[in-house]
Design a protein around this nucleic acid. Structure first.
Lengths: 170, 170
DNA sequence: TTGGAGTGTCAACAAGGCTGACGTATGATC
DNA sequence: GATCATACGTCAGCCTTGTTGACACTCCAA
């Protein structure tokens, strides 16, 4: 695994981009970039006594309105107790609405209220502005590569969840 | 590449990759990919009663041996109280060594011990394996784009910190 | 009628952020 | 030599957000 020559070759293909050093730099790039990625929404949320957990819930409820709690649980990858605490405050503050299912009345379907949509807009405007600047600076080919690598980095279930959100509503 | 009916055009450049929908997908890709990115080390750390904070400290001490506490503080972007809590346990557990500076005796220089290097290796092996698979799957051009976009996404200071680590030790 | 699924809630706890305050060396400066 | 600034450590307390475990309720299906 670790330690071979300086240039790794396999089947005549140049794999210089797979050196330990390149991978380390990739790891650090992910770390620093994720910090930037969350910095802008974090600033907005801090003023509202909300955290990233609230942002994530709002984002995915907006993305898939009417989603059930269990579905959201799967996407977010936390326990229902954690999600419930966040959801409770969002509902109490009038940002999220929880409607009992019509087909299956055990289910709760989640929707953003007008206030919720307003906050979602503010948060994602900030985040999109940064991403837009980064995308514009890097160019279309780089963006395609960026998305390819991220996709490949996900766990299979997450890849499915991501694809579902992507294709579900064009 | 260029020209179709529904494309957005600005100054003759095709900006289809900058639509709201594309940006939203980029945001979600970052979210899901970061989860995958941290999943493997997280599993190892859970068994050791350590967390991501310990991982980050170990990573950057390994990356820049002899770094001072203040320097590490800048890279990690946390308070000294937070870092100190982590550092204290790592030193107590014999993974990190803190040496008083020779030039300036106020400074503490941080090094990994043999045990520390062993753990660092285990953690980064896991993380690199995932990244290597993703890089290999996506190919060199995609990886170049990936890194370009991440770089553009960072805050300027982080970009500098990242560049410093990158160029400091080739 | 009974079992199970989906949901909500309570309690307790831990990691890891934060702020504020204080102490102690050491270095730099007047 | 006295004074101020810097680097570091630490105590105390608070917050968010994650975790387990236990329990109750509603509804669907067998």
């Amino acid at each position: 695994m670790s330690g071979s020559g300086t240039t790794q070759r396999l089947g005549g293909e140049n794999l210089l981009f797979l050196t330990e050093e390149q991978l380390r730099q990739g790891i650090e790039a992910m770390f620093f970039a994720y910090r930037g990625f969350t910095a802008d929404p974090d600033r907005i949320l801090a003023d509202l006594a909300y955290g990233r957990a609230h942002h994530r819930a709002i984002h995915f409820i907006n993305r898939a309105p009417g989603t059930t709690v269990t579905n959201l649980l799967d996407i977010l990858g936390v326990t229902k107790q954690s999600l419930n605490r966040v959801l409770r405050t969002l509902i109490a503050d009038g940002l999220v609405e929880s409607r009992i299912g019509t087909l299956d009345k055990r289910e709760r379907h989640l929707y953003l209220t007008d206030d919720g949509r307003e906050l979602e807009g503010r948060l994602s405007d900030a985040q999109r502005a940064r991403l837009r600047a980064a995308f514009r600076e890097a160019g279309p080919e780089a963006v395609a590569g960026f998305r390819q690598v991220l996709e490949a980095m996900m766990d299979p279930e997450m890849r499915r969840a991501h694809a579902k959100l992507r294709d579900g509503r064009t």
